[in-house]
Structure formats: structure tokens, C-alpha cells
Amino acid sequence: MADLSRIFDIWQRVNCRIDDRLYEGVVNEVYCDHIIVDIAEISNHCWFEEGINIGDVYPEYNYW
């Protein structure tokens, strides 16, 4: 299990796949096992967790 606090930073811009669509977001909170992302079009509290849906989060520098 990776420590997500070593991979993501607060205020980091990310792209998130939800329902086969990509949304731009900003990481609001970072913990060892999950991150909270603010996606303006959906919610300011989108939860992404290792082993569930963290694979749907792409840091902007990795995506383009």
C-alpha cells in the first residue's frame, strides 16, 4: 500500500475520471490512504481511495 501523502500535494491540479468523463480538480486534503478533490462541476469533497478509485486520478503533469 502506497502512502498517498508522498504522491499528492494540497492544491495540486489533477484530472479525475468519473462515469467515463474527465473532470479537472484540485486536491484539497491528502491522507495516507485517500485524497479529497474539489471538482467544481461535481463536489468540493470527492473521495478517492487506494484500492477503490485512486487509479482514476491523474496528476496534470502526468496526463498531458
Rank of each mutant, 00 (worst) to 15 (best):
M1Q: 04
A2L: 12
A2F: 06
A2N: 07
D3H: 12
L4V: 02
R6A: 09
I7G: 00
D9R: 15
D9S: 15
W11G: 01
Q12Y: 07
Q12V: 04
R13G: 05
V14F: 10
N15R: 15
C16K: 04
C16Q: 05
R17A: 12
I18W: 03
I18M: 14
D19M: 12
D19C: 09
R21H: 13
R21A: 13
L22S: 03
Y23P: 07
Y23H: 14
Y23Q: 09
Y23N: 07
V27G: 08
N28W: 01
N28G: 00
E29K: 14
V30Y: 04
Y31V: 00
C32M: 09
D33I: 02
D33Q: 10
H34K: 14
I35L: 06
I36R: 05
V37D: 03
V37S: 02
I39L: 09
I39R: 01
A40Y: 05
E41S: 14
E41H: 03
E41I: 01
E41P: 02
I42G: 00
S43C: 10
N44G: 11
N44E: 13
H45Q: 14
C46G: 02
W47D: 13
F48M: 06
E49S: 13
E49N: 05
E50V: 11
G51I: 05
N53I: 04
I54H: 01
G55A: 07
V57G: 02
V57I: 06
V57M: 00
V57L: 03
Y58P: 00
Y58S: 08
Y58V: 00
P59Q: 04
P59L: 04
E60P: 00
E60S: 12
Y61D: 13
Y63L: 06
Y63F: 15
W64R: 08
